[in-house]
């Protein structure tokens, strides 16, 4: 720091009066602090430039037309550059999901909580495994759906049930349900 050197300079006798010394110290400390404040404010643009840019943020909603999806079928859509599962559950699958005691789940949620009221057959989830981000298999019935008939992640073997809840394997959470709303009876808007 500048302050002590000021006082110790050989040719410049220390200012004896308390007020004088304090004032000198104060100015030097204030100047160095101002430099510090300036340096920290420069970090704002440097850090925030790495956050998503305006064009990326704007790509934040997707419309999906459900009309062509038959019971038991599903499609993959794209939401925020990530795959999205849109699946129309069979009554059997709904029953299987409802039969599971919620308390026994790793991430306890009912199918009703994960779908819209009156639209229980439409299961809309991100197609991103909550373990490390792979895309699980199972949206098409010919793919491996795992032991619980939902989705199976081939990377590390996480298994999801027909409500896309984690049942077995390393994933910590159920497949995420994004924000969405029905715009008509057969169309949704995600995000």
């Amino acid at each position: 720091m500048a302050d002590d050197a000021v006082i110790d300079t050989p040719e410049h006798a220390p200012v004896v009066t308390d007020g004088g010394v304090r004032r000198r110290d104060f100015i030097n400390i204030a100047a160095v602090s101002a430099a510090g404040v300036g340096a920290v404010s420069v970090l704002l643009p440097l850090v925030s430039q790495m956050a998503p840019s305006a064009d990326v943020l704007a790509e934040s909603s997707t419309d999906v037309d459900l009309a062509s999806i038959q019971v038991g079928q599903g499609i993959k859509a794209v939401f925020r550059s990530q795959p999205l599962f849109v699946r129309r559950l069979t009554p059997k699958e709904i029953a299987a999901a409802d039969a599971v005691p919620v308390a026994s789940l790793r991430d306890p949620e009912t199918l009703a909580q994960r779908t819209k009221p009156g639209k229980t057959e439409w299961l809309i989830t991100m197609a991103v495994c909550t373990h490390l981000g792979c895309v699980p298999l199972g949206i098409v019935s010919t793919e491996n759906r795992g032991e619980f008939g939902g989705y199976f992640c081939p990377c590390h073997g996480s298994q999801y049930d027909t409500a896309a809840r984690i049942r077995k394997g390393p994933a910590p959470k159920n497949l995420e349900v994004p924000d969405y709303a029905f715009t008509t009876d057969t169309a949704i808007k995600v995000g």
Binding site: A2, A5, V6, T9, E11, H12, A13, R24, I27, N28, A30, A31, V32, A34, A35, V37, G38
Partner: peptide, 17 residues
């Protein structure tokens, strides 16, 4: 503001020199 302070600190450091 900061340059004003820096000028005062500069004068301060060189006072008597």
């Amino acid at each position: 503001f900061a340059t004003g302070l820096a000028y005062m600190a500069y004068q301060n450091v060189w006072a008597g020199k």
